[in-house]
Write a protein that binds this DNA or RNA. Sequence first.
RNA 1: GAGCCAUUAGCUCAGUCGGUAGAGCACCUGACUCUUAAUCAGGGUGUCCGGCGUUCGAGUCGCCGAUGGCUCACCA
Length: 503
Amino acid sequence: MTSDITPNEIEANQELSAEETNHLMGVRLKKLADLQKDGINPFGGHYDRTHYSQDIIKNIEKLEESEVAIAGRIMLVRGHGKATFLSLQDDAGRIQVYVKLDVVGEEQYALLDKLDIGDFLGVKGQVFITHRGEISVRANQMLLLSKSLRPLPEKWHGLKDIETRYRQRYVDLIVNPQVKDTFVTRSKTISGIRRYLDNLGFLEVETPTMQPIPGGAAARPFITHHNAQDIDMYMRIALELYLKRLIVGGMERVYELGRVFRNEGMSIKHNPEFTMLEIYQSYADYNDMIKLTEEMLATVAQEVLGSMQFTYQDALLDFTPPWQRMTMIEAVRKYAEVDFDQIKDDTEAQKAAAAAGITIEKNASKGQILNCFFEEKVEANLIQPTIITDYPIEISPLAKKLPNNPNFTARFEAFVYGRELANAFSELNDPLDQRERFQAQVDKRAAGDDEAHMMDEDFLRALEYGMPPTGGLGIGIDRLVMFFTNSASIRDVILFPTMKQKE
RNA sequence: GAGCCAUUAGCUCAGUCGGUAGAGCACCUGACUCUUAAUCAGGGUGUCCGGCGUUCGAGUCGCCGAUGGCUCACCA
């Protein structure tokens, strides 16, 4: 039942498809037309599958010689004249199918001529083990479930081109099995977090992604437009201010797992949209949030990876609590050998920065300079999970002051592999103090800092009704998943990373 | 936003000094009833990312542009 394909026929089929085609697609379109001519629907409907590939492989001793129905995508074909081997790929893996002319008959065997790698096939038959020991299904009946018109990448090298992998993730998922593993791990991580928080009595909520005033972080927002109201709106840059409104409203333990958007550069660690987890707990403070961070991430690591220790790039990370802990001043003293407890004012701090070769903004304050020292000299050293506490007030406009030192806040960040993974504090619930902090931000904004906060009167009004003392925590989910999947780039843990439009 | 690098067949990649565009896989034809990157024989299917330029002649050299990667900047 083989057919010579003339150049004319290929050309005709290329016209059929209208779009970009090539020789290989022309061949497949011809097969498609032949199938239809024979009364076979190349894009079939329901199929009663009884087993996944891995069900059969794991339960071979029970299933040998029993009848199964499997379905999947043809990934390899090895023809032997009157017998053919196929590798069928389903959600769970691959299994070999053995099609023998004697068994299926002429008509079914002829179907093979019209099949291609990439087609979806349903197979009914008996489970058996080949002489070479491969668990296989001896086909009695094959049913074409869906025809594939585009050729898949090569069976051995797969799809390597990074651009194509990101733009056409569907192909990446078909041919690179470890890609699916990564996203399964991502899914398990997120469901593990949900389970952990739900068990502690936290309520998952959803707050607006389009906001009149974007707040909760220092970042430039995306602007969008609502036609009906004819107003510009902002895509959210954080979840914080709406979740705290819910704390005011008496929802004592809330969390949101959601997408945020920041209009900034892209890198191996940054995608314009990414997933944040934010958690707020009434009557808690930042020390409670430290415990929650350690316990939750260690628990999820144990669940998802089977261990609290795992390899990331060149490091063996250990999430076992408790994590190392240092104040920011202690960390700078240790790694930069500059003691900010001994620095009296801004001028002295500026001199220390100059001496250390650290570039700072003109008239930078002591707290800002401390943070510069930390970012330039300390962060890269924090490979194992480390909790850095007591952040300067200048860079923490939403955090409570330390009772014994109003220049610092009850805040911490967790660092892993030199990267910020979590950010948390005792939430500022004094509406008068919060108003002053916003005003300082508004002044910075007027001075040209377009990442500074805007005044949010409604948020202040909420605080004026009274907010209980509250601990808040934010965790970058993409970065966490990068660690859990040993991914070098954030784009490897986002199914469809942001890409420029191709002309 | 800046610097460096990359872009050649459906996929993975070669391509020398500027001189007719190559391989493997895939695909097509034929053989083959336990193969597994099946094997054997035959067949090359192309907008060399795009444009302009230099040259008798450009995949190759120059300039401009597109997209991607890495580094830096910004940031989480």
